[in-house]
């Protein structure tokens, strides 16, 4: 099959499944206790993720973007139950993952995989590459040792690392190659959804492009669905079909990427776009928005709309009433009292 054929099949599949929701996150909450004193009593909670809802359609790439402390990583980790949620639901093919026992969850592990940020700490330095990639197969009791290594060879080839290196240790590889090994480790289990948490942010620009292209190819080949978590807007724009923007544990805007980038309706999204440096010295941006102040601590978030302390559109109501995430246009959700003003400004 040529690549074009694969692509055309993929597109028709995509079209037929276009509205099929693979994963739905509902009212997800994750609070971390703040402990203090001799007896380590809980004196407060960091609301890392506070009532977050979104869905991922089959075959799409959903970008999840926000600055440090916004809870995007925690969302990724709780969806896969790598850390236990405080509340909410995650429906995967209509099964609530949070209601499963740990044993039952094991069955879903292979379907929901993760690619990690740090290519250095995400591979066990004392294991050989073949054992790193085969780890999931072994845990799922798939095949015997020989069959597993056969698969390892196959997947190393697919991610572009020569299988002749399978007996090596991670430190013998470069950052980009290590990230490919991490991808092979997730892929070998034949997952449906891959959560990529800052999967390219630790890589050099030239290598980053290689890995992004690889992720793109693999999505076509294996009909993967991605939740792509990143702080880099340019990367998110490049890979995503739709984008979720988070700020201090809350979703502030969800839309398809063209709308997010051309017509952002939340002031935070707009500021984020405006802050992103453009690698072109001739682009002189007028009315550039530079937000004042720091991101507040998630342990003590501002009242009402959490963005109101830095927002140039803020009114008294913003400090009192928390705006709801509303669908203001089909498929475009925003949590702001004054999104209309911004829409007018955008015009």
């Amino acid at each position: 099959m040529t690549l074009a054929e694969v692509k055309s099949i993929q597109t028709t599949q995509n079209q037929s499944k276009n509205d099929q929701i693979l994963l739905e996150v509902k009212n997800l909450k994750k609070y971390f206790p703040i402990k203090a004193g001799v007896f380590r009593s809980t004196v407060g909670w960091v609301k890392a993720v506070d009532d977050v809802s979104f869905y991922i359609k089959k075959g799409e790439t959903l970008g999840l973007v926000g600055e440090s402390g916004c809870g995007k990583t925690t969302v990724g980790q709780t969806i896969l139950r790598l850390i236990e949620p405080t509340g909410g639901h995650v429906f995967y093919n209509n099964v609530d993952l949070f209601k499963l026992s740990k044993g039952q969850m094991k069955k879903y592990r292979s379907k929901l995989q993760m690619i990690f940020q740090d290519p250095y700490s995400s591979l066990d330095p004392r294991m050989r590459v073949k054992d790193i990639i085969a780890e999931g197969l072994k845990a799922a009791h798939i095949g015997n040792t020989k069959e597993r290594y056969e698969k390892v060879r196959d997947y190393m080839q697919r991610v572009g690392v020569s299988p002749t290196y399978m007996n090596r240790f991670p430190h013998e590889f470069s950052g980009g190659q290590r990230q490919r090994i991490g991808i092979a480790r997730a892929l070998v289990l034949n997952p449906e959804l891959i959560v990529a948490d800052e999967a390219v942010s630790a890589l050099d620009a030239s290598v980053q492009a290689q890995v992004l292209n690889l992720l793109d190819d693999l999505q076509q080949e294996f009909h993967l669905t991605y939740l792509f978590i990143a702080h880099n807007l340019s990367v998110v724009r490049h890979v995503s079909d739709r984008v979720v923007v988070m700020y201090l544990g809350k979703v502030v805007e969800i839309a398809n990427k063209h709308e997010i980038f051309s017509d952002p309706l939340h002031p935070y999204t707009k500021a984020l776009l405006s802050a992103n440096p453009i690698p072109d010295p001739t682009v002189k941006r007028k009315d550039r928005i530079i937000l004042q102040g720091d991101v507040p601590s998630p342990a003590n978030p501002p009242s009402g709309c959490r963005f109101h302390t830095r927002c140039w559109l803020a009114q008294p109501i913003c400090a009192q009433e928390e705006p709801k995430l509303e669908e203001v246009h089909p498929g475009h959700f925003v949590a702001c009292h004054f999104w209309k003003n911004l829409e007018d400004q955008n015009k």
């Binding site: 790598l82 592990r109 993760m114 990690f116 995400s122 066990d124 004392r126 780890e135 845990a139 480790r185």
Partner: peptide
């Protein structure tokens, strides 16, 4: 704290194996 431990959880590796394969050797 290393991500490979979380990766092992994500792969469905049982706790005992995480201890013997990842935590103790390191």
């Amino acid at each position: 704290e290393n991500q490979y431990v979380m990766a092992a959880v994500a792969l469905g590796t049982p706790g005992g194996r995480i201890i013997t394969r990842h935590l103790l050797p390191n």
